[in-house]
Simulated scan of single mutants.
Amino acid sequence: MAAFTLYVQLREDEAPDDVEDLLGPFVAAYDSAEYEISTVDDNDQEGVVVPDKALAIDDVDAFAEIFQELNEDPAVHDLSLWGPGSSRFPVRAYHHALRSLSDPDRYQFHALNNRETLVICDTPSDLQQAREDIGSAGLVTGGSAKF
């Protein structure tokens, strides 16, 4: 089990024939990244496919860099920031919303850019608390996993 996992959902019309064409460069470039079997449920949305591989990543800096690059890829419909293979659970939040956290010492933070931060939670209950504290207006859309 990796500290972090990224599960991709791809646009069917732009998806590579083999998901390794998309994810392989990250596995080659980052010592902390490797393939993981994707156990996230298939998406029921028409035109969206969930490949059988995901990324297991042990380093938060690598996780953030890979996330940002994949998030800009036109073949990527959505990225799930955690799932069944995760041992840590990040959620994307706008910087201004971090003031809403009732116990900020409970979390680690990693800025993605000048607007967004990953709030890194150690347990699913911490994740739930962070989401409740931040609220829907402070959360960046996307990034949930389906179990």
Rank of each mutant, 00 (worst) to 15 (best):
I57K: 07
L112D: 09
L23R: 13
R106E: 09
G85H: 01
A15D: 02
W82R: 14
T5W: 02
N71L: 03
G142S: 04
D133L: 05
G138F: 07
F26C: 09
V140P: 08
L112W: 01
V119L: 14
A2W: 05
G24V: 02
Y7K: 11
F67T: 07
Q68Y: 07
A3Y: 09
F63D: 02
R106A: 01
N113P: 09
T39L: 12
L118Y: 09
D41G: 01
A3V: 06
E69F: 00
A29P: 04
T5S: 12
E65F: 00
D103S: 00
Q128E: 15
Q128K: 15
I120F: 00
A15G: 06
S144F: 13
W82S: 15
L70M: 02
S80R: 14
A93V: 00
D126K: 15
V8T: 15
S102F: 05
Y94R: 15
A137M: 01
S32K: 11
D31L: 13
Y35L: 06
G135P: 09
V27F: 02
L70Y: 08
E65T: 06
H95R: 11
D133E: 01
M1C: 04
L127W: 10
A2P: 15
P51F: 05
S86Q: 03
A111V: 05
S100D: 09
V27M: 01
F67S: 02
E20Y: 00
A54C: 10
S102P: 05
L22V: 05
L127H: 06
T5I: 10
D61Q: 13
D31T: 09
L79E: 08
G135D: 03
D61H: 13
A145L: 07
A130W: 04
E46V: 12
V48R: 07
S102C: 08
G135H: 05
A137K: 13
Q45H: 03
E12S: 12
S86R: 02
P25D: 07
F63I: 05
G138H: 07
A137T: 12
